[in-house]
Simulated scan of single mutants.
Amino acid sequence: MGESSSKMAAPVILNATAKHSATIIFLHGLGDTGHGWASAMGEVSMPHIKVICPTAPVMPVTLNAGFKMPSWFDLTSLELDGPEDTQGIKAARDKIHQLISQEVQSGIPSSRIMLGGFSQGGALSLYSAFTHKEPLAGVIALSCWLPLRAEFPQAAVGNLDTHILQCHGDCDPVVPYKFGQISSCLVKKFAPNIDFKTIPGMMHSSSETEMKSVKEFIRARLPDL
């Protein structure tokens, strides 16, 4: 078991159907898999874009009484100033940076790679973007927060000018709407191109309105060459 338990399962990949010139890497939330978001992302993508939806490694999650489930890092609480799994967040970030560099090696410049995620995956996508030196095409942060926020702005070594779309439902019972707002205000201080969209009445999920914004964001930031 040992090492293999922390290895990621094969990601769900939607290959470009035209000449591949851009990539979106989208990270699911706690307890989900890459399949959870693949079809939704496929619907808002474009023919020249390859979509990668990786699946997090299975690990015991403190927040869920130690039950094992796909999780990017351990979650001990969803309190605003609760303890965080610093080591786990950084290890997960390294895996995401690896996925980005694999795309770069295959010929897609980092400026044509977009990162995104939902909930825990959105948190990881924000953290991974700001700790990545090379510029990315954009970040889609859904129903999430900025992890290890006490490290910022010092920890932000890149993507300070990158456009970020952050969406949050104002009825979210899991990741409170307030967390999203606090994260957005903090990020705005060092990365001004963040657009925070409130989705009225939405809980900890997605909606047509939100996906319409995601689709517009992808079209604006990753047009066909």
Rank of each mutant, 00 (worst) to 15 (best):
E3Y: 14
E3C: 11
S4R: 00
S5T: 15
S5Y: 13
S5N: 14
K7G: 08
A10F: 00
P11D: 07
V12M: 02
I13L: 01
I13Y: 08
I13Q: 10
L14N: 09
L14T: 13
N15M: 00
A16T: 05
A18V: 02
K19H: 09
H20T: 01
H20W: 04
S21H: 08
A22M: 14
A22Q: 12
I24Y: 09
G31T: 07
D32P: 08
G34L: 13
E43Y: 00
E43V: 00
S45Y: 04
M46V: 05
I49F: 15
V58H: 03
L63R: 12
L63D: 06
N64Q: 00
N64C: 00
G66F: 02
G66H: 03
K68Q: 12
P70W: 03
W72K: 05
W72E: 12
D74M: 01
L75C: 05
L75A: 07
L75W: 01
T76P: 01
T76R: 08
L78G: 02
L78S: 03
L80N: 10
D81A: 09
G82E: 03
T86R: 11
T86F: 03
Q87I: 09
I89V: 14
K90L: 10
A91D: 15
A91F: 07
A91P: 01
A91L: 05
A92D: 11
A92F: 05
R93L: 14
R93V: 15
D94W: 03
K95S: 15
H97E: 14
Q98V: 01
Q98C: 02
Q102C: 03
G107W: 04
I108M: 09
S110F: 03
I113T: 09
F118S: 02
A123R: 11
L124Y: 07
S125D: 05
Y127S: 05
E134M: 00
P135I: 04
P135E: 15
G138V: 08
G138P: 04
I140M: 15
S143L: 08
C144L: 08
W145L: 12
L148T: 01
L148D: 00
R149P: 03
E151N: 12
P153F: 07
P153D: 01
P153K: 06
Q154C: 00
Q154N: 04
A156C: 11
G158P: 14
N159I: 05
H163Y: 10
L165R: 10
Q166E: 05
C167H: 13
H168A: 07
G169I: 09
D170Q: 06
D170W: 12
D170R: 03
C171E: 11
V174G: 03
V175S: 11
K178V: 15
G180T: 09
I182F: 06
S183R: 13
S184V: 10
C185F: 14
V187F: 12
K188C: 02
A191D: 04
A191I: 06
D195L: 09
F196V: 11
K197Y: 11
I199P: 05
M202R: 04
T209D: 15
M211N: 11
M211H: 08
V214Y: 11
E216A: 00
I218N: 07
I218T: 07
R219D: 13
R219N: 12
A220K: 13
P223G: 09
L225D: 14
